[in-house]
Simulated scan of single mutants.
Amino acid sequence: MPVVIVYPPDEDGGRRVRIDGEILGRAFGLRDVAEFLRRAGLEGVEASDVPGLAGIEWRGGGPGVWDH
Rank of each mutant, 00 (worst) to 15 (best):
P2A: 15
P2D: 15
V3N: 06
V3G: 00
V4C: 02
I5N: 00
I5M: 01
I5F: 01
I5R: 03
V6L: 07
Y7K: 12
Y7G: 00
P8R: 12
P8D: 03
P9K: 14
P9W: 06
D10E: 09
D12L: 14
G13H: 10
G14C: 12
G14D: 11
G14S: 10
R15S: 00
R15C: 00
R15A: 01
R15L: 02
R16K: 11
R16F: 02
V17D: 00
V17S: 04
R18N: 07
R18F: 01
I19M: 05
I19L: 09
D20Y: 09
D20E: 15
E22T: 15
E22I: 15
I23W: 12
I23L: 10
I23Y: 15
L24P: 06
G25E: 13
G25Y: 10
R26G: 12
R26Q: 13
R26T: 11
A27E: 02
A27G: 04
G29Q: 06
L30M: 13
L30I: 08
R31V: 12
D32T: 02
V33Y: 08
A34I: 03
A34N: 11
E35I: 03
E35W: 05
E35C: 10
F36S: 07
L37H: 07
L37G: 04
R39G: 14
R39H: 14
R39W: 08
A40T: 04
A40G: 04
A40P: 02
G41F: 10
G41Q: 14
G41H: 14
L42N: 05
L42W: 11
E43C: 04
E43A: 13
E43Y: 01
E43N: 05
E43D: 12
G44I: 03
G44A: 13
G44L: 03
G44H: 14
G44M: 03
G44P: 01
E46K: 09
E46I: 01
E46L: 11
E46R: 09
A47S: 15
S48P: 00
S48E: 15
S48N: 07
G52F: 13
A54I: 13
G55P: 08
G55D: 12
G55H: 05
I56Y: 07
I56V: 09
I56A: 04
E57G: 00
E57A: 02
W58H: 03
W58V: 04
W58T: 00
R59A: 00
R59I: 01
R59F: 01
G60T: 02
G61N: 02
G61F: 04
G62I: 08
G62W: 04
G62F: 01
P63M: 06
P63E: 02
P63L: 05
G64N: 05
V65Q: 05
W66L: 10
W66G: 06
H68V: 06
